[in-house]
Design a protein around this nucleic acid. Structure first.
Length: 240
DNA sequence: GCCAACGTTGGC
DNA sequence: GCCAACGTTGGC
């Protein structure tokens, strides 16, 4: 799962903090979609002031080595109750909609590749809200990024199911973004339907033939190409 | 509840 | 640095 533990999201204070700025300037830029921690993270020792490091860690698997800029995303969350260390991690799109300002922080992501994608997100970009680990998995709605990556506070909270004792405030390991509800999709778009298109298009060609949802099974935050995003949107209009 | 896929950890 | 054991994700 991948659920952001949005529960008690205090995302509403999106504006009152500014850690994003310093964060963004010094560490972010070197990060690629590597699955692994960056070299810098692995090496960093407490007390070392190293921000300068920009190791050229060319981890980018995408052919051209240059990071292509994605502008659409898919973010997974669990709409049904499930307890992790005594805490219910349920957070469906209706829960987002019910938040103050219909906004929440997407905390709890603990996978480097997913984290790095979040760090690539820009304010204003749209994402599909995907319901996972539930009766009917699939796309339930559209959300947008309203605050770019900043440290995920839950990594420091011992009571949180996603607490990470290896992370420090000086060099936070995990990031989150704030997202805002945009709308429900006109109809729920089930995984089964996406998969059918994917499989058909894998043979004959089509926008979903390489969709990350199927090629990187467990990734909770994933990019979509414009073509993928548009194709999925076009499914809204179809009879189910 | 099962279990396949796959990321992470740690011994060597 | 390899790789087996382990833990997590998430569909079914």
């Amino acid at each position: 799962m991948s659920r952001p533990g949005k529960k008690r999201s205090r995302a509403t204070l999106a504006d009152k903090e500014r850690p994003a700025a310093k964060f963004a300037k010094s560490k972010i830029q070197e990060e690629e979609e590597s699955m692994m921690p960056t070299a810098k993270e692995r090496n960093s020792k407490p007390g070392q002031s190293g921000t300068g490091k920009v190791t050229k860690k060319e981890a980018c698997p995408s052919a051209q080595g240059s990071k292509q800029a994605y502008s659409h995303w898919l973010m997974k969350s669990e709409p049904e109750s499930r307890f992790e260390k005594g805490v219910d991690v349920k957070f469906g799109i209706e829960d987002l909609k019910a938040q103050p300002n219909q906004t929440a922080c997407w905390d709890g992501v603990r996978n480097y590749q997913a984290r790095n994608f979040m760090r690539d997100m820009k304010v204003g970009q749209e994402a599909f809200f995907y319901h996972s680990n539930c009766k009917e998995p699939g796309i339930a709605g559209i959300i947008k990024i309203v605050k770019e990556a900043y440290p995920d506070h839950t990594q420091f909270d011992k009571k949180d199911p996603h607490y990470d004792s290896s992370s420090t405030k000086e060099n936070p390991k995990w990031s989150m973004v704030d997202v805002q509800f945009v709308r429900l999709t006109k109809r729920f778009i089930p995984l089964s339907e996406l998969k059918a298109h994917h499989q058909a298009q894998r043979a004959s060609g089509g926008p979903l033939k390489d969709m990350t949802l199927f090629t990187r099974q467990r990734l909770s935050i994933q990019p979509l190409t414009d073509e993928e995003f548009e194709f999925v949107l076009s499914l809204e209009e179809k009879q189910s």
